[in-house]
Simulated assay, not measured.
Amino acid sequence: MSNNTHLNLLQLGSFFFGTFWVSIALILYCIQSHGVPSAGPWLVKTLKVCFWLYAGCALLVVVFQYHVIFDEEHLPVTECMPAWILSAYPFLALGPLATVLEYSQPQTSAIPIMVGGIVFQGLEWMTAFIMYTIYFTRLINSDLSESKRPGMYVAVGPAAYTSNTLVALGVHAPKVLPATFLGITSVPTGDLWKAFAVPAGMFLWLLGFWFFALATMSVPWWYKKLHFMLNNWAFIFPNVGLTVALIQIGKVLDSDGIKGVCSAMTVALVIACIVVAVMNVGAVWRGDVLWPGMDEDVEDMEGHGQKMRPD
């Protein structure tokens, strides 16, 4: 592999650095859900500090990641994939993280976290919206190879997790926001916030489902060629956001039908997660992934026709 090719792979792979920060946010999410009810007020204060530290780190990641990509790499529009959104993924989990942190925080801390969750999620959504435009251009102008089609599910994530954020923050708003927040005295501000946020979340959920349907329609065309690649994990995380957002919508509407659909989606996700995990272990054991020339980077390597397997 030439030095230039190796550099290009590093630059393209840098898109995936954002997923590391999503993992950190999910760890904080789980600490709030499982640790706070059993711990003292010290953990509540710790999570408040962690939220803002994470937000600052996420902002630096998004700024510098895209700076490096824009400055060092010239990527053709015809090669655009939803993975180009991944550098903004650290903000994807900030909104949902804010929704679980705010109700255990004192009001002086809960309001800034709520506002921070909205604005940071908004940055992620607008970045994704811009990338959606480029992605649509690619879908119209060129075909997707079979190996890249599971990555289409990544496009579900921004709409799904933003929907979850809007609905959840809207539901909590009457409890968190003072009645005269922002100087509004005619109606309780929390109720007004909820009235706008919940319908907006429903609006975005259907967009996420549309991306899910597009990706799902493309899968049957290549199922006979199905083999594990690391982007197969896109079957899981974005669709978890779609499911969690629908759970929030089902609760706020008190709809038994929606709750039943959510149960079915949850079962399907658990099965999919187990299948992908087993395929992942098998692929590593056989040397089909994490080896030079045997992963999704094979199409970007010089001499990719000569694949290298471990003995």
Rank of each mutant, 00 (worst) to 15 (best):
L192D: 04
A197S: 10
F212V: 00
S218N: 01
W193T: 07
S255Q: 03
W205H: 10
L242F: 09
N232Q: 10
L230A: 09
L230N: 01
A245D: 08
D300V: 08
A215N: 07
M279C: 13
K225D: 15
L214T: 06
F237I: 01
G282I: 09
I236P: 05
A245R: 05
V270C: 02
G282H: 12
A213M: 09
A195S: 15
L214R: 08
K259R: 15
A197D: 04
G293R: 07
V298C: 10
S255E: 03
A215Y: 07
M202W: 07
R286D: 10
L269A: 01
N231E: 02
A215G: 07
M229Q: 13
N231Q: 11
F211L: 05
S255L: 02
L230K: 01
G282S: 13
V261P: 01
D295F: 03
G293P: 01
V276G: 08
Y223K: 10
L214F: 10
A277P: 04
N231H: 07
M217E: 10
A200M: 15
P220Q: 08
A200C: 15
V281W: 14
L226S: 15
T243S: 11
D254E: 12
F228G: 02
A195I: 06
D295H: 05
I258A: 05
M229W: 13
F196A: 14
F212N: 07
A197F: 12
D254S: 12
K225V: 12
G282M: 12
F212D: 07
S263Y: 15
Y223V: 14
V198L: 09
I247S: 00
V240S: 06
K259S: 14
P220R: 08
S255K: 02
L226G: 13
P292V: 02
W233S: 07
M279R: 14
V298D: 11
V252T: 12
K225C: 13
G293C: 04
L269C: 02
W210P: 07
A197T: 08
L226C: 15
V267N: 00
E299K: 10
G260N: 08
D256P: 06
A195E: 13
V252G: 03
L207F: 12
F228C: 03
F212C: 10
A245E: 02
A195D: 11
A277G: 06
G260C: 07
R286I: 10
K259F: 12
V284E: 05
F203W: 13
L253Y: 03
G293Y: 01
P199A: 06
W205S: 01
N280S: 13
V270I: 05
M229Y: 15
L192E: 00
T266N: 00
K225P: 09
A195Q: 13
G208I: 03
C262P: 03
K259C: 11
V289S: 05
L214A: 09
E299R: 12
V276R: 05
K224R: 11
I236Q: 05
A197Y: 05
L214C: 02
D288E: 15
A234P: 00
D288T: 14
W205T: 03
V281H: 15
F196P: 05
A200L: 15
L206M: 02
P220E: 08
A264S: 12
D297K: 10
T266C: 07
A200N: 04
F212E: 03
G208F: 01
F212R: 01
A272S: 15
I247Q: 05
D300N: 15
Q248R: 11
I249V: 06
V281Q: 12
V198S: 00
V270E: 03
C262R: 04
E296D: 14
G293S: 08
V252A: 04
T216H: 06
P199L: 03
